Amino acid sequence: MNSEMDSSSGEAEISFDFRPFFRIYKDGRIDRLAGNDIVPPSIDHQTGVSSKDFLIVPETSVAARIFLPKITTSAQKLPLLVYFHGGGFCVETPFSPEYHNYVSSLVAEANVVAVSVHYRRAPEHPLPIAYDDSWFALQWVASHSKRNGPESWLNKHADFGRLFLAGDSAGANIAHNLAMRAAETPLKNGLRIFGLGMVHPYFHGEEPLGPEASDEEKRQNVDLMWLSACPSTGGCDDPWVNPAACPNLAKLACKRVLVFLAECDVVRDGGLCYCETLRKSGWKGKLELMDVEGENHVFHISQPNSKKALAMQARLASFLNQVDQDYYHQEQLRSDHYVSLRSSL
């Protein structure tokens, strides 16, 4: 996939050509050939889902598109989803039509509040910048858990006892790495991540198995994608991208994990490796897997209304509506204690 333009033509030399998505030039510039369109926040009159944008860090342009389903009562508290878009760490945004529509549709079906994170992208902003931006956004979300944050929808309607992280492709990789970071650095106000949803997660290794290993061109693409996003890495056995190289996987800071795979996905084997490694790590949570036959990487974004994409969405929506019984037990104890104190006054 490496190619160079004829220097006599006056055009810059290309170091990495990943059409139809992007091209990276040797001088560091990037042509994003996809994911450049944006749509404004809106109200979907069919589903009742509303959206708005919030600039979290003006200096770095870290932002979020926030989605709220149709609210029936002002006291209604809904599961909270923090979503990270895919695109190889290099293309797409929460404001892209495909991602806006996907998250909006998921919010309508699952009846959740969603925060779709806009992080800075490689190669201009190489990893770990996307991880750091996403972590800052997650901490910003956590700052609302005492109902006094800057964003009213989160203060009024988010159930912080049901916090989920999710993403597709590179976004799933980000979600996983944030759950790993949360094991070492607590979220604000002691907030905990309940569940982690990963759609076609971008994981890789120096010695992958299956079709990825037998197709040298596809393997080279995956290698170069990682190296272009994270040039400071030691290679594809970096714990950020290879779960088998992560020494602390058992500490993954959530109780539930749902992984979606696709039969024809070039990084399917990385997702399988993740599941197998997590099972063997000693992690105490519950792992679920949905493997879809005959489909390619992130087909649910390009074919959102297909039967299999809708089935995936329904499964993820069900996952997002699980209840953290331990959290609610503690909340009930606090409530009972409060009632006892009031009755004794």
Rank of each mutant, 00 (worst) to 15 (best):
Glu217Arg: 12
Gln313Cys: 02
Leu258Met: 09
Cys273Thr: 09
Val257Gly: 07
Val292Ile: 15
Lys280Ile: 00
Asn242Ile: 03
Asp326His: 08
Gly294Ser: 15
Val298Ser: 13
Val222Leu: 15
Gln332Cys: 06
Ser335Gln: 13
Met290Asn: 05
Gly282Phe: 11
Pro211Phe: 09
Ala245Tyr: 07
Gln325Glu: 14
Gln220Ser: 12
Ala314Leu: 08
Asn305Leu: 13
Leu320Gly: 02
Val298Phe: 10
Leu320Glu: 06
Asn248Cys: 01
Leu249Asn: 04
Met312Gly: 10
Arg268Glu: 12
Ser228Asn: 14
Asp324Asn: 14
Ala262Met: 09
Phe299Ser: 01
Phe299Val: 01
Pro243His: 04
Glu212Trp: 08
Asp336Trp: 10
Leu289Lys: 12
Trp226Thr: 01
Gly282Ser: 07
Thr233Asn: 05
Asn321Val: 03
Asp237Met: 08
Val298Gly: 04
Asn221Ile: 13
Tyr328Arg: 04
Leu333Glu: 12
Lys284Leu: 06
Trp226His: 11
Leu227His: 08
Val266Phe: 13
His300Lys: 01
Ala229Pro: 08
Ala314Gln: 12
Asp269Pro: 02
Gly282Gln: 09
Arg279Val: 00
Thr233Arg: 06
Asp291Glu: 14
Val267Phe: 10
Val266Pro: 14
Glu212Ile: 06
Asp269Ile: 00
Leu341Gln: 09
Arg342Val: 07
Val298Met: 12
Val222His: 12
Glu295Ala: 05
Lys280Trp: 03
Pro304Met: 10
Tyr328Leu: 01
Ala250Val: 02
Leu261Pro: 01
Lys308Gln: 14
Leu341Val: 02
Ala317Ile: 02
Asn221Tyr: 14
Leu316Arg: 01
Leu224Pro: 00
Asn221Lys: 14
Tyr274Met: 07
Leu258Asp: 03
Ser232Ile: 00
Met312Asn: 08
Glu293Val: 00
Leu227Ala: 10
Ala253His: 13
Asn305Val: 00
His329Ala: 09
Leu258Gly: 01
Asp238Val: 03
Asp238Met: 03
Met225Asp: 03
Ser214Thr: 15
Gln313Pro: 00
Pro231Asp: 07
Arg256Ser: 06
Pro243Ser: 04
Asp336Lys: 12
Asp326Cys: 01
Cys230Met: 10
Lys284Thr: 04
Lys255Thr: 06
Ser340Leu: 13
Met225Ser: 07
Lys284Gln: 12
Ser232Trp: 06
His297Trp: 09
Lys286Met: 10
Val323Gly: 02
Ala311Ile: 00
Gly294Val: 01
